[in-house]
Simulated scan of single mutants.
Amino acid sequence: MKHVIGLGFATAFAATMVFAEPVDPTAVVYEDGAVAVSLSGQAGDPDNGAILMNKGSGNCIACHSVEALSHLPFHGEVGPPLDGVADRWSEAELRGIVANAKVMFDGTMMPAFYKTEGFTRLGDAYTGKAHADGSVQPLLTAQDIEDVVSFLVTLKEE
């Protein structure tokens, strides 16, 4: 009977993890800038996180240098180097920083990657016009945030 109950609990727990809904950008709970729970309800993929560090709406290396990605060109110097970032910040803090660094660091130049409201004069790409329907999508999805964070937690001092 123990195995049946244990299996039932494990199945129920796994189902909640697999089918968890992403946290809406307007519902993210920041505690001193940190976000304790996965925004997607899923574990992150560090390999995809490494890709996002260089491409698309992430493009973290445009501002930050990352030795683990030294094979990629054009690392920036605007933000601090990300080498050893997992030794300086917890996973929850990294999630909060990637989602909206402005919560932790007032006045930072880092974009809010998981924010959809509260902007001033937000334009629609390079059109010079405001968003037509008023809706704004975050720069990264909840799963993208989790993927980037899962890559960042691998960046420890050696």
Rank of each mutant, 00 (worst) to 15 (best):
A86I: 02
A92Q: 11
H3D: 15
V28I: 14
G33V: 07
L94V: 02
D47M: 14
L155T: 07
R95M: 03
K2T: 12
T26E: 12
T127Q: 13
S38V: 02
V85L: 05
E91Y: 04
F13A: 15
H131P: 05
A36D: 13
L140V: 04
S38F: 03
V4W: 13
M1K: 10
F113H: 00
L82S: 11
D133R: 09
D133A: 10
A101K: 05
D124K: 14
S135T: 06
A15D: 08
S57D: 11
E67C: 08
A62D: 07
Q42G: 05
N54D: 13
L39S: 06
N100S: 11
S65D: 12
T116F: 00
D106I: 07
E91K: 04
L69F: 01
E31Q: 14
T120R: 11
M53W: 00
N48C: 02
G134C: 01
A14W: 12
A14N: 11
D45I: 03
E67K: 15
S150G: 10
L152W: 00
T16Y: 15
P46G: 00
G58H: 08
C60T: 12
H131M: 09
A130N: 13
G41Y: 01
Y30W: 14
A12H: 09
L139M: 08
G8C: 14
S38L: 04
S40V: 03
A99I: 11
T154D: 06
A12F: 11
S70R: 15
D32I: 05
R121C: 10
A10C: 10
E117F: 04
V148S: 01
P46T: 01
V78G: 11
E91W: 03
F119V: 01
M1W: 11
A112I: 00
W89D: 06
